[in-house]
């Protein structure tokens, strides 16, 4: 079992936030961070554990969102069932895509997943009767459970972060099991794990599918919270953003994903004061953070604090 203290601390913080933050815009931003952190967790398993970079994660995010949205709007499925089906579809697509694709290595894998993402975006734009085209899909119903509106700003915040906490806890514990340790051995290359009898291909396919599952779940939650989706929320730039969030949080650092997501989503909010300079500053800050905090924001901050503490102690003596 993973240590429970960080989970309890995060749970307390989550419980307190809606009481401290009255502004619904800020609260929905907090929910969005939770949604993206969920998607990043999936990607983090793939990149940090297995060393496989996917630039098509936004397509799975979109499969969850559009799948669930279309099933509930056009086919009248109840929201819960629509979400379940959408996540299932995304897993199936991931499985079909994974078998030939994961044979590819490095840049070829990046290109294949990127290509998949571009195709997905074009289909979203062109298949107007179903997706609503560039103007997006309107009127997606909200989530409801036993008469409680789960898409309410405050309640949805709890829902997303509860899901995220459970997923993080499951992942952390899974990584300590025998198959989990085998997965962690993959990122150094296939040779060693394969020679120790780890079924490398099967594990990679499984991991790719699991990453797609988490990302699609995040997408489905996104669609039923905002109740409106449009193609550009799921294009390759979002995939690139997800990878950047993973790197900012620290590769393989499950908790870091939250910080990566928060940093990248809050950055444009801070930069809104300078609309002309926004793109330039966004790029520069991203570049500088990646240059000087390559291990991720959270670990680097820890190191910096340790240094300050040590220096303070030394001066006292």
């Amino acid at each position: 079992m993973a240590a429970w203290t960080p989970y309890a601390a995060l749970a307390l913080a989550v419980l307190a936030t809606p009481w401290l933050v009255a502004d619904t815009y800020l609260l929905s931003l907090g929910s969005l961070i939770g949604v993206f952190a969920l998607a990043v967790t999936g990607l983090n398993l793939l990149i940090g554990m297995a060393g496989q970079v996917s630039l098509g994660q936004a397509a799975f995010f979109g499969l969850g969102a559009y799948g669930s949205g279309i099933l509930s709007v056009h086919f009248g499925l109840p929201v819960g069932l629509a979400m379940l089906c959408a996540v299932g579809i995304a897993c199936l697509v991931a499985l079909v895509l994974a078998v030939p694709t994961l044979k590819l290595e490095g840049h070829y894998l990046v290109m294949a997943t990127l290509g998949f993402n571009i195709i997905f975006t074009i289909v979203c734009i062109q298949w107007e009767p179903m997706t609503g085209g560039t103007s997006g899909l309107f009127g997606i119903p909200g989530m409801e459970l036993a008469g409680v509106n789960l898409s309410d700003d405050r309640i949805f915040f709890y829902v997303v972060w509860a899901v995220l906490l459970v997923v993080l806890w499951l992942c952390a514990n899974f990584l300590r099991t025998r198959p989990g340790r085998a997965l962690r051995s993959l990122h150094q290359g296939d040779l060693l794990p394969a020679s120790l009898g780890v079924p490398v291909t099967r594990y990679k396919v499984g991991l790719f599918t699991a990453a797609a599952l988490l990302t699609a779940l995040a997408g489905a939650l996104y669609a039923h919270y905002f109740q409106f989706i449009s193609p550009h929320s799921f294009d390759m730039f979002v995939s690139l953003q997800l990878v950047t969030m993973t790197a900012l949080g620290g590769l393989g650092n499950l908790w870091g994903g939250i910080f990566g997501a928060a940093f990248l989503l809050l950055l444009p909010e801070w930069l809104h004061a300078w609309p002309d300079l926004m793109i330039l500053l966004h790029g520069l800050i991203l570049m500088l953070v990646l240059m000087f905090c390559p291990k991720g924001l959270l670990p680097e901050m820890g190191v910096a604090i340790q240094k300050v503490v040590r220096r303070a102690r030394r001066t006292r003596i």
């Binding site: 990149i47 970079v53 690139l240 990878v243 950047t244 790197a247 590769l251 002309d276 300079l277 926004m278 793109i279 330039l280 500053l281 966004h282 790029g283 520069l284 991203l286 570049m287 500088l288 990646l290 240059m291 000087f292 390559p294 291990k295």
Partner: peptide, 30 residues
Amino acid sequence: PLGLARSRHVLILVLVTVGFSIAARGAASL
């Protein structure tokens, strides 16, 4: 950007070029 980056990890360096490209786009729009 690439020369001063503290990490030699390929993914980090590739993402540094992504940051550079966003900055270049921003500069061009200005």
